[in-house]
Design a protein around this nucleic acid. Structure first.
Lengths: 211, 211
DNA sequence: TAGATTGTTAATCGATTAACAATC
DNA sequence: TAGATTGTTAATCGATTAACAATC
């Protein structure tokens, strides 16, 4: 096992996790691939194929045990292994993410907030002080964050990403418009490109009128 | 032409638009598919295939004119046709999106902000008053928004989405954990599932160690 | 004209769906 | 046991890459 799982499969796992969580919350304990497929709007084949990348979690003639399957998928996603994370850029967006996201249920622990604006430094958000980016090196050498969240403009992101990669950061949750991806091979990047997503919606609204 | 363009192609268009914008800003006026491919980390074939879904924008022996190509892609994306949009849910996230996003350069015009919390109603953000969701029907019948941004929890999203679809909203930028997608055929949805993205990053950090 | 690079067709690759034997 | 549903192999479909003739 290892790195042979396709991106398409990995990107679907969180959605499975979510649907199974809802079913569990509704008190349902068992489901067939056929029924789950129907609820999710995909095919039963795809579900069985996807799951069997990681092992046989079902039982013939019965289906899948919902709480067990959810736990397994969470484990595959590594959300039970909290990874230390810092956030750079405490503007509107950074602040909202800090407040809004439940990191602990998604595999991360937010341990530091940073901004370059001196007027923000020292403010406390979610029980953490906003630190000066000047202290980033020191903080990282002491606390060894595995991941970083970039809520800063493109130009700043280029600089900071370089610095963080050198400090051993292995993964980025990237809200900037800087395409980190292929500049640092080996580093994992998940892009949240708001603008790209909006433009895609614009296209769909103006085109494919039917269905 | 019309609805025969694959999602893969459409999802790549905003990134082309972004890269061409940067090249234009750098004062470069001309580029070959080979060189653009190199900069973007994709193949030249893919660029030529993608562009030729919409027409021949290049010139043999020369390449592509950067400003012209960017304008064309913007036009394809429909970002030169502003679509009226409302935002529901003025918590941390909704507020950040209102402040942070440049809607006008991405095909949208934000015309209304809504929240159910009476304590927020009347507050002014970006020169717009936060309105009560009670007034949503009235506002939509008067202003006919084409799109809506959902920054509310799943349960609220289910209700509000139903209401908005009935009021003629044709597209959703969805930050909630409610999977609108297949409940309303014909309605366009772009999901921004923060949690899903974070979990995917978690997987990548814990797995595919090499490269 | 010769060189470069597109537009486009053909070949390859990967992902999704269908089918079915294994088995609970 | 009979019925149901998985795990898995085979078939199909779609997307990406390669190749090359057209043409600026």
């Amino acid at each position: 096992m290892g790195s042979t799982i396709s991106n398409s499969v990995i990107n679907r796992l969180p959605r499975y996790y979510r649907f199974l969580g809802e079913l569990k919350a509704a008190g349902i304990t068992r489901i067939s691939s056929r029924e789950l497929a129907e609820r999710m709007g995909i095919t039963a084949s795809q579900i069985r194929q996807d799951l069997n990348c990681f092992g046989g979690f079902g039982q013939q003639g019965y289906g899948y045990n919902i709480p067990m399957l959810q736990t397994e998928i969470g484990h595959i996603l590594g959300i039970d292994k909290l990874k230390s994370t810092i956030l750079i850029g405490m503007g509107n967006l950074g602040r909202a993410i800090t407040m809004h996201i439940n990191f602990e249920t998604k595999g991360f622990r937010l341990i530091g907030l940073f901004d370059s604006k001196e007027s923000l430094v020292g403010q406390v958000v979610k029980n953490m002080p906003i630190r000066s980016v000047e202290t980033l090196d020191e903080f990282c050498r002491e606390n060894r964050p595995e991941a970083a969240i970039l809520c800063i403009p493109k130009a700043a992101a280029e600089e900071i990403a370089e610095q963080l990669v050198n400090l051993g950061v292995k993964g980025f949750w990237n809200f900037s418009h800087y395409d980190l991806g292929f500049n640092y091979p080996g580093v994992k990047v998940e892009n949240m490109h708001f603008g790209d997503s909006l433009m895609t919606l614009s296209y769909r609204l103006d085109n494919d009128k039917i269905q």
